[in-house]
Design a binder for these strands. Sequence first.
DNA 1: TTGTAGGCGTTATCAA
DNA 2: TTGATAACGCCTACAA
Lengths: 341, 341
Amino acid sequence: MPVTIRDVARQLNLSITTVSRALDGYQDVSAATRERVIQAAHQLGYIPNRAARQLRRRRTDTIGYIMPTISGHPSGGLVAEFISGMIEAASIKKYDLLISSAPEGGEAEQLLYHRWACERRVDGFILDRVRQVDWRVSYLAQEHIPFTSLERSADGQDYPSVHIDYLTCVSGLVGHLVGQGFKRIAFMGSADDLVIHSDKFEGYRLGLIANHMTLDPTLVIQSDPTSTGGYQAARKLQALPKPPTALICVYDEPAIGVLRAAYDAHMKIGQDLAVVVFDAAQGSQRSQPAITSVDQPVEEIAQQLVRMLLTEINGTSLPMRQLVIQPVVRFGIFSAKGGYI
Amino acid sequence: MPVTIRDVARQLNLSITTVSRALDGYQDVSAATRERVIQAAHQLGYIPNRAARQLRRRRTDTIGYIMPTISGHPSGGLVAEFISGMIEAASIKKYDLLISSAPEGGEAEQLLYHRWACERRVDGFILDRVRQVDWRVSYLAQEHIPFTSLERSADGQDYPSVHIDYLTCVSGLVGHLVGQGFKRIAFMGSADDLVIHSDKFEGYRLGLIANHMTLDPTLVIQSDPTSTGGYQAARKLQALPKPPTALICVYDEPAIGVLRAAYDAHMKIGQDLAVVVFDAAQGSQRSQPAITSVDQPVEEIAQQLVRMLLTEINGTSLPMRQLVIQPVVRFGIFSAKGGYI
DNA sequence: TTGTAGGCGTTATCAA
DNA sequence: TTGATAACGCCTACAA
């Protein structure tokens, strides 16, 4: 049986009121009493019951994250870092993280957000994988439930968010490729309407323009978020009359298929084919130094999101509600031996 | 302002008692009343306040997971699957998952378990990365707080757990390697005392014995949990008078270094050096078909852990408290072209 | 079958 | 500076 505030009060012949205030650091308690209370509480191992406190204070000191899944699986290899980043930033401020999952965009997702909101289960939400049109944003904004999101949906609501500047980054990469002599640059996208992905495409488009090139629609292809999908898409590109000499691949999984396809076609990465991959930190690209990889500083992003959410929750709404973060580019090292590592 | 049970009662001119019982499915409510109550509750969008319910019922319908971190980072690439497995099994039973992290074995970890226990924050815990000597096990057992764990510590407590049968598996793999002509088999372990790792070593030892070979201590080496560590350890092995022709590598990260070391030494994986790696699902081995990989069915394990924990929490303590799971072996495909993919 | 009343452990209001 | 008292929203003996 955990000790309650009553036990502490009884032990000291004080009222629970005084004990409560002493522990919460109110000023209207004599220093001597406070000292005794803190002593006794510590000695008895008193830790306030969370449910009672939540009920009374009308806040949970907990933030919620609903992990978007794709056919039941967590999306991408960065989830762990994202979660641990959130945890870290939250626990510094004595917040906990409540977590669940739901297929992204589905009805279960809606129910879950709704339930946690109505149950007063969390004080706010962290969103990621925001889509161009994202009901979560409109719902939470409308219900006045605090949230922050990685990337912004297109519906023009005003809310705090972190934005990754893929536009500048990818546009610059296109220039880099052109500078290296890779002139036919393909883009392998995905079928979803995630903002992070469409921003990359936009960067690609603008990069071409900036380098006085025209966008060749046959070089833009979509892939399933699987390595098989990437393999198939790569084969299609190879089958073109004038196949690409460079490929920008929106993310990790399909890139593995791309590598395999290149291998099967006896093409040397970084030589016959320049490859740029996003979010490959967890993928097979790590051991393939001829690839240029673009990574998000995931943990930092997660921490920022939490910090912003907490200031939002605590009402100290800052003017600075949009944070722009630059992705980290690791340029591919040309493989002298022309092989793979 | 979320609607409360009062609102529902008022709307129907009923007492909150009746509403409560109708919604909770008690039998002493007339069918007609129940119908009306359910109707009204639905129409008003009534969802019970969680804190109030927790306070009253003295349970949270939440389970806790404290992610063990190593120098601030989540350990291994399987965390995401593990978490999503837990979430899935939990949400089926209407449980939520509260999650935090702490450096494994540290003081912060103890505090956190203690706090969540005393605060009545969760109904039970899931443990993974159990060590031979693990204070979490003794603490929770002593405090009578429900928990289940992946692997069992060596202190002989009685508690429900899932056990991965690395012993049989690795011992069999040793036989397989010997059968393929790889006679000098090295073992690259880790410095921690995780049960999953020592079980693998034990399987290695027994496998050698079963194949009438003696354990050569110079072939047993420890590595940091980093790819650099793996690289260095591999170089040391290569420098031996009689270097190994096969290597069993306890997990993912160091294996990447091993591959690099092999490449630098112009050794062909699956030919000059047979490599067995554990938990490589996320690592660079995925694109290296010449490697034999041994994986845990992580999601299934996580689900089982949660299911067992929930039966434990709900007092229906089953006799079947130990579950043994076989790891999944994908044998390396000999690379005909002798190259990497 | 329904309602009344008390309490879960805290915090907040007010009076002493 | 301290203490009695009333919530917070829900559940459950017990009474009607």
